[in-house]
């Protein structure tokens, strides 16, 4: 019995807890990508950089708050700075839309042109971020580091294996639940949210029924900016803020959005967790888990690992490609590819 519990604790510690946190971050990122795809109808290559920009703004406001001596008790100060960061990211997104994307909407550019345009935006954001804060690795979390420490857990339960939960992991999941709850309430219950879904489902019909497209686009950018900032900040809190990492996150995020069905918010959330847990389960070494579960004579001598951890991110690329090739509409999508 204890063996079984020990095995479960290892899995919880190395797969479930990190997977929930990483999955929440991916889901928030994928929601942004999927909203832009659903309403503005293009794949936004600049989304990773939008996340980086949002996280950067939050970081700058965090420094400001810290220099004023304001903290958030055991929670990271960045959470207090988040609303300001989101505000700054909203301004950035709206300015970009006004200066860049608006024109291509008017001329009804093809999806390919949109992607090339978003590559240009990506370059500009990329440069701006490095111009402001440089390429360094920065730790932006403060407050209490752990909710539950491995040793405290061992003492409390008397098990061999420890379970550690970082504050940032709990914050990630909490913020994601809150944000997703708000988003779905907005999309399903409010007039503006319904008009957004209508516009996404059938543009012509929505225009006929008097929905103002520019307003829908504006709201979409505001929500996208908020989600991107949240996702970027949570990832930065959990790991650390490095500008180039967000570009590497772009493909896992697209993978999450596509696995769930491009354009479907529910699918984006499911996709985020599918990607996070696949990355972790495929590259986890099950040796110690099996050592608890199997009798001593059958204990494995190898690591029992499907793929080395080097390939962690590659797993999401592989899933992305396989889903695109086999079922491009994803798990929840209706739109054809």
């Amino acid at each position: 019995m204890t063996d079984l519990l020990n095995a479960l604790v290892i899995i919880a510690n190395f797969i479930i807890v990190p997977g929930l946190a990483y999955g929440s971050q991916l889901a928030l990122g994928a929601l942004g990508v999927t909203l832009v795809f659903g309403v503005l109808r293009f794949s936004n290559i600049a989304h990773g950089e939008t996340m980086a920009a949002g996280a950067m703004f939050t970081m700058l406001f965090t420094w400001l708050l810290q220099s004023m001596g304001i903290g958030f008790g055991p929670l990271p100060t960045a959470l207090l700075a988040l609303p300001f960061g989101i505000g700054a990211a909203m301004v950035l997104c709206l300015a970009t839309d006004r200066a860049v994307y608006g024109y291509y909407r008017r001329v009804r550019a093809s999806p390919a042109i949109y992607i090339i345009v978003s590559v240009g935006v990506m370059f500009v954001y990329n440069g701006l971020i490095r111009f402001v804060v440089g390429p360094q690795d920065r730790v932006i979390t403060d407050g209490q580091r752990f909710i539950m420490k491995a040793r405290a857990f061992k003492q409390a339960t008397g098990l061999n294996e420890g379970l550690a939960i970082k504050t940032t992991q709990a914050v990630s999941v909490g913020c994601a639940v809150l944000a997703v709850g708000l988003l779905f309430w907005f999309l399903n219950r409010t007039r503006t949210g319904k008009s957004m879904r209508a516009y996404s489902d059938n543009e012509d019909l929505a225009l006929l029924s008097g929905i103002n497209p520019e307003r829908v686009v504006l709201i979409t950018w505001l929500i996208t900016a908020a989600l991107a900032t949240l996702a970027g900040t949570l990832y930065g809190l959990d790991k650390s803020f490095r500008p180039f990492v967000y570009m590497q996150l772009l493909l896992p995020i697209f993978a999450a959005a596509i696995v769930g069905g491009f354009g479907s918010p529910l699918g984006a959330i499911a996709g985020g967790f599918v990607i996070a847990f696949s990355e972790l389960t495929v590259t986890f070494a099950y040796k110690r888990v099996l050592a608890y579960l199997l009798p001593d004579s059958m204990a494995p001598s190898t690591l029992v690992q499907l793929l080395s951890t080097d390939y962690k991110i590659a797993v999401s690329f592989a899933i992305l490609v396989i889903v695109l090739l086999i079922k491009p509409t994803g798990l929840f999508g209706q739109r054809t590819a």
Binding site: F42, S43, Y114, L251, A255, A314, L320, V321, L324, P328
Partner: peptide, 24 residues
């Protein structure tokens, strides 16, 4: 052979992913 049937932006993302896998 496997990916050219995809619509333009899906093809873009698929090829981006495949090129990353090659690098990995």
């Amino acid at each position: 052979k496997v990916s050219l049937g995809l619509r333009s932006d899906y093809l873009a993302i698929a090829t981006l992913g495949i090129s990353e896998i090659i690098i990995f």
